[in-house]
Each structure stands twice: as C-alpha cells, then as structure tokens.
Amino acid sequence: MAKKSKWWKRKFFTIMIIPHDASTAKTRRVHLSIILLVIFAIVGIISTSLTLYRIASTKFSRVKHLEVLEEVTEKQKAQIKEIDILREKLKELEETEKKLKSILGIKGSLPPPKDKKVVSLGIDYAPDIDTYDFQRKIIEVKTLIDEKQRELARVENEIQRRKSLLVVIPSRWPTFGFISSGFGWRFHPIFRKVRFHTGIDIVTFWGAPVYATADGIVTYVGWESGYGKVIKINHGRGITTYYAHLSSYAVSVGQYVKKGQFIGRVGSTGTSIGPHLHYEVRRGGNPVNPSAYLSVDIIKIGKLY
C-alpha cells in the first residue's frame, strides 16, 4: 500500500461548493500557491491598513494639538494686549487720582463705601497654566482698576461735597478794600477804651458795592444800634453774616440771595468815623473771625468741614 504524502506537500486543494437548493455540487481545484498568495495578500492589506490608520491618527492628533496651541497662543496674545491696555488705564487713573488728591489736599484714601463689588474671573476653567496665569494677571489689574475707579468716584463725591459747602460758606470778600480793624480785642476809636470787636472793618469808598459772601436767606434789613443800616443773611448750618454801616440796601427780608450777589452799598451809618463795611460771621449765634473764611477754598474747606 502506497504511503500518503503530508498535506502541506500536496500541490492542489479541492474546494467544494454545495448550493442550498440541492442542485449539483461544484468543485474547484486550487493550487496551494494561490491560497498562500491570498492569505499573504489579506495579511498585508490588514497590516498596511493598521499602519496607515496609526500614521493618520498620529498626524491627526498632531494637527489637533497644533490647532489647540495656535488657539492658545492667539488667546495669550490677546490677553497680553489686554493686560497692556489695562495697565495703561490703571496708570492714567493713578495719575488722575494723585492730581485730584493733591489739589484737594487729601492724604491717603477716602473711606470706602459699604457695598463691595467682586470682579469675576470670566472663565469657568483654564486650558493650561499659561492661560491661567495670564487670566489671573488680567483679573489682578482689573481689580486694581475697579478700586481706583471707586477711589476716584469718592474723590469726585468729595469735590461735589466741598463745592456745595463753598456755596453756603462765607468764603469771599464782601467788598473791595483793606482791613483796618481785625477781629478780637481792640482800642475803640470812638469810645476810647478796649472793647471786643465782633467782626472786621473793611475800609473803602462811600457807595462801594457790597456782595453776599454765600448763598442764603435775608433775615434782617434795617437799622440797629451801633451797626446803623445792616443786613443779616442766614446761610444755614448755623452760620449768619452781618453787613453793617451801609448807606443803602438792595435786598429785602425773606429774599434768597446767591453768593456774590449785590445786596447794598458801603456807608458810615451807626457808630462809625468814616465809610467802611463792618462785616461779621456768626456760628450758632457766636461771632467768629471772618478772616478765617475769606481765604477758604476747596482745599481749606475740607479741614473746616
């Protein structure tokens, strides 16, 4: 009996195809080399496909990474530009604050308001540490700008407060001339003895115009012993001004007058030895030195009130 050869030494294989419709089966004889070629081809196609897939995936990942880097870089450039703009704005605010405080004579910071705003970060997360650092710097500068704007707002409010006070504070000269007799104890030129002078005497020519030294309401117009013809104006906050020894009036009781408004003319009525204006400032009914108010400006008023 002949010995059978091993299967891998056989040159041909028979492939049988059996249809489902029970028709005649078909056989095909295939050479071993073709089968091996097909197997190698399939394996090669699969290997090549996997290699191409890996290369494509790697390139795609690199492209996405580059796109992300470009996006982050553009964002960082925008953040750097924003930081530069914010720092320039902060510098301008600091210079403005310094100038205003210098003009007003304010040292340090004004009392802050009770409400306090919080500057938002503006993002829920940061994609990388650099972006986070830039964003943090932006927030820091924005916070400083916000505080400077608040401080400037407080300075502006202080300016408005002082301006409002200057309107009702007797801080201008009531007439033109020079002070011949100041406030306080003096030797009276008529009574020839030392008496307390409750105001200042401003020497000028007869008929010189007299002006209200602050906004207020005229409370008295008429004759009063010693003062002669006198006008009294209530400026609020317990402050009243007297204009005495007048020759004529230009206002009436109950009239509201503005600072610098013409109210009468200089004379020599009452206890007087020549044309001059006796001018008084009273706080709470008590006479105070008018000279302290004549030079009051927006800086000095901050120390008085």
Results as ranks from 00 to 15, higher is better:
residue 248 S to A: 15
residue 239 I to N: 07
residue 261 Q to C: 06
residue 248 S to N: 14
residue 248 S to R: 12
residue 241 T to F: 06
residue 251 V to W: 13
residue 265 R to N: 06
residue 252 S to Q: 14
residue 241 T to V: 08
residue 248 S to E: 09
residue 241 T to Q: 13
residue 267 G to Q: 02
residue 246 L to E: 15
residue 241 T to E: 11
residue 250 A to M: 10
residue 255 Q to C: 05
residue 266 V to D: 01
residue 238 G to L: 06
residue 245 H to T: 04
residue 258 K to I: 00
residue 245 H to V: 08
residue 246 L to M: 13
residue 241 T to M: 13
residue 252 S to K: 14
residue 253 V to K: 15
residue 250 A to N: 05
residue 241 T to R: 08
residue 245 H to R: 11
residue 258 K to T: 08
residue 257 V to P: 06
residue 264 G to T: 03
residue 245 H to F: 11
residue 256 Y to F: 15
residue 261 Q to S: 05
residue 260 G to K: 09
residue 249 Y to W: 15
residue 250 A to W: 10
residue 246 L to D: 05
residue 261 Q to A: 12
residue 257 V to A: 05
residue 257 V to K: 06
residue 265 R to V: 04
residue 245 H to I: 10
residue 252 S to V: 13
residue 240 T to N: 09
residue 240 T to S: 08
residue 254 G to N: 13
residue 241 T to N: 12
residue 263 I to W: 04
residue 266 V to T: 02
residue 249 Y to S: 10
residue 244 A to K: 15
residue 263 I to G: 01
residue 264 G to W: 03
residue 267 G to N: 04
residue 265 R to L: 05
residue 252 S to W: 13
residue 260 G to Q: 05
residue 245 H to N: 14
residue 264 G to E: 02
residue 258 K to F: 09
residue 255 Q to R: 08
residue 266 V to E: 02
residue 263 I to Q: 03
residue 254 G to Y: 11
residue 252 S to C: 11
residue 254 G to I: 10
residue 248 S to K: 11
residue 239 I to L: 14
residue 264 G to R: 03
residue 263 I to K: 03
residue 265 R to F: 01
residue 259 K to I: 01
residue 249 Y to N: 14
residue 238 G to T: 07
residue 267 G to H: 03
residue 263 I to T: 00
residue 257 V to C: 10
residue 247 S to L: 08
residue 259 K to E: 06
residue 244 A to I: 05
residue 242 Y to Q: 13
residue 243 Y to R: 05
residue 241 T to L: 12
residue 246 L to Y: 11
residue 262 F to N: 02
residue 239 I to E: 07
residue 240 T to M: 09
residue 262 F to C: 03
residue 252 S to E: 14
residue 267 G to T: 03
residue 260 G to N: 00
residue 253 V to N: 13
residue 249 Y to F: 15
residue 238 G to M: 00
residue 250 A to C: 11
residue 253 V to R: 15
residue 244 A to E: 06
residue 238 G to K: 05
residue 253 V to Y: 12
residue 265 R to M: 02
residue 242 Y to E: 15
residue 241 T to I: 07
residue 248 S to D: 15
residue 246 L to I: 07
residue 246 L to T: 08
residue 262 F to T: 01
residue 237 R to V: 04
residue 254 G to T: 09
residue 267 G to W: 01
residue 241 T to W: 11
residue 259 K to A: 09
residue 251 V to E: 15
residue 266 V to C: 02
residue 244 A to V: 14
residue 264 G to M: 03
residue 254 G to D: 12
residue 239 I to W: 01
residue 241 T to D: 11
residue 263 I to Y: 04
residue 238 G to F: 00
residue 251 V to N: 12
residue 247 S to Y: 05
residue 253 V to W: 14
residue 261 Q to K: 08
residue 247 S to I: 09
residue 238 G to S: 07
residue 267 G to K: 01
residue 259 K to W: 03
residue 255 Q to P: 00
residue 263 I to A: 04
residue 247 S to R: 07
residue 249 Y to V: 03
residue 238 G to D: 11
residue 237 R to I: 00
residue 255 Q to T: 04
residue 253 V to H: 14
residue 240 T to V: 15
residue 237 R to G: 00
